[in-house]
Design a binder for these strands. Structure first.
Lengths: 167, 167
DNA sequence: CTCAATGCAAAGTATTTGCACGCTC
DNA sequence: GAGCGTGCAAATACTTTGCATTGAG
């Protein structure tokens, strides 16, 4: 049994919940993913290994995994909720390429410290935060036709939380 | 005519669009707001001054205002799109109190510089970014019963993009 | 045996689109 | 007039919930 499975089992038992074959499988599939998966994405993968599993169970199990500290919800602004690994995969932030959709994860201790300092100045107590930077990744900058296009006509793959060009 | 109205008019003309009484009114109401308004919120306000205006027009006009650079979309993770002023109200980030829902806007040049440096390290070209810090504002910290509660039982008013406690 | 879990279908939310009529330009 | 704008209603896209049945402890 992996550490993750133990964490999950402990969470279930601690909450008076039950271990089921579906939950085991969903956790297993989730742990094998690398990307940021939506509930629907994961459902498609799980279905391949057990076609009898339904949407709802995947959806609810992802919430459970989040409660157990194994998963973490992330939203990139396209209206879909995605999940990423949370266990032994501590806080980080994201750069999201609006051209190819790729996400780059990064962590900066300086950034964290600076945020704490800003929060303190406002007497604000941080419990969580998200930083997302939208733009063009190295690959897409090289094949960079985007500079020549009328930006207002281009349909970004990821919808902005703030309009482009306001950083 | 205010500067904002001129900007809007210029955008409309430049795009072959037309000025209408509805658009004028919606812009006017929007400019008088302070908060981060959802399309629905603004619709409620607009309806008080002209009950014949529909949802859809407000919704589409907010998109127009965004295109014109007068408004900016923001999402705090509760599944609703909100709009804030963009004209002469440059980029800033948000702290969001999970207790009372209040948002604090702030800007830090150091933060911007640090982000640019991080992006450069990954050869990433930023076009936009959002930083959101969730937690407890000064007021709510004073009336701070939240420390005594079982956090897992508390229903935060704002849903997290990352689980609490991962900063 | 009891109570939670499952999967279907249906209900919510928030957003977006189709269309007939009306109004700018 | 021609074509965009408007408002209604309907369609999407996700997410969440109700309920009868199944299954874990």
């Amino acid at each position: 049994m992996t550490e993750e499975q133990e964490v999950f089992l402990r969470h279930l038992q601690g909450s008076g919940l039950k271990r089921t074959a579906q939950r085991d499988l969903i956790l297993d599939v989730f742990l094998r993913t690398e990307e940021h998966m939506s509930s629907e994405d994961l459902y498609q993968l799980v279905k391949q290994e057990d076609p009898s599993i339904g949407h709802t169970t995947v959806y609810r199990t992802l919430k459970l995994l989040t409660d157990a500290g194994l998963a973490r919800e992330v939203r990139f602004g396209d209206g879909r909720t995605r999940y990423e690994h949370n266990y032994k995969h501590p806080h980080h932030d994201h750069m999201i390429c609006v051209e190819c959709g790729k996400t780059i994860e990064f962590f900066s201790a300086d950034l964290e410290k600076l945020q704490d300092r800003i929060a303190a100045k406002h007497k604000f107590e941080i419990t969580a935060h998200t930083l997302r930077m939208f733009g063009y990744c190295a690959d897409c900058r090289n094949s960079a036709e985007h500079r020549d296009n009328d930006l207002s006509a281009a349909e970004p793959r990821v919808r902005f939380d703030t309009a482009p060009g306001t950083s």
